[in-house]
Amino acid sequence: MQKKNVLLWVSAGLVYLFLYLPLVIVVVFSFNDSRLNAEWVGFTWKWYGKLFHNREMLGAAMNSLIIATVSTGTATILGTLAGMAMNQYRLRLLPLLVLSPIAMPDILMGVSLLLFFIMVNMTLGLLSIMLAHITFCIGFVALAVQARMSSMDPALVEAARDLGASPWRCFREITLPLLLPGILAGALMAFTLSIDDFVITFFTAGVGSSTLPLQIYSMVKIAVTPEVNAVSTLLMLLTLVVITGASRLYPAIFRGE
């Protein structure tokens, strides 16, 4: 082991400071008793109270959760299939299709899906957002599953087959349990990506389908009250809970990822 390098630790510490200082400020200013929220005035809980009476915000949060749940579910199934296929066969088209959406800037997927939905005469709304989210989530699940599968011993399945197990039983009792950490890691990633997505949702959202990030964007743009801070603080708290919960339940997700 090398000696601890002071310079290295100090510079890394500064980067951590850079990462966390802004978030601390958001949290602190959510308790600021000033509508303008430019300088510190005094402590208050009122923005949180206001938030829980803000119907638009609650509606948007609800939309976000519905979209994230449905798209994570669908993308997890499709992504798992894709990951397994990519691991077992030498395919050309599928890896290209799976990886390209990850490699493209979000805005491109947003505008091309907007064009597509309009051309096929589809009304923009929750459904169009879900279809878009599934598209960009599949790749992340597929990658996680593929990585997990490549570390799996194929002899296990072959042995079970030789012992007379049906393919379905093999899948259910051997492949699936072994793949589960990979699938869950992928699903978790898909969920956070979906609930966090702004750019693609911005282009594919329609009437009454505003999501939390869209709502935050319009609030940030108009910059009215510390309610933005309050909702941000709650969101951070929620992700913190989800992440710690997931890492407790399935520590394997966070190892080797």
């Binding site: 309009i118 005469n121 589809m122 009304t123 923009l124 709304g125 329609g206 009437v207 319009s218 108009i222």
Partner: peptide, 23 residues
């Protein structure tokens, strides 16, 4: 009453003509 907002005429037109029906 559910409200959505816009901050420019062009933005509103683009959104409506892009098929944001339902208002």
């Amino acid at each position: 009453v559910v409200q959505d907002y816009y901050s420019g005429t062009e933005e509103m037109m683009a959104k409506l003509l892009a098929g944001a029906s339902g208002y």
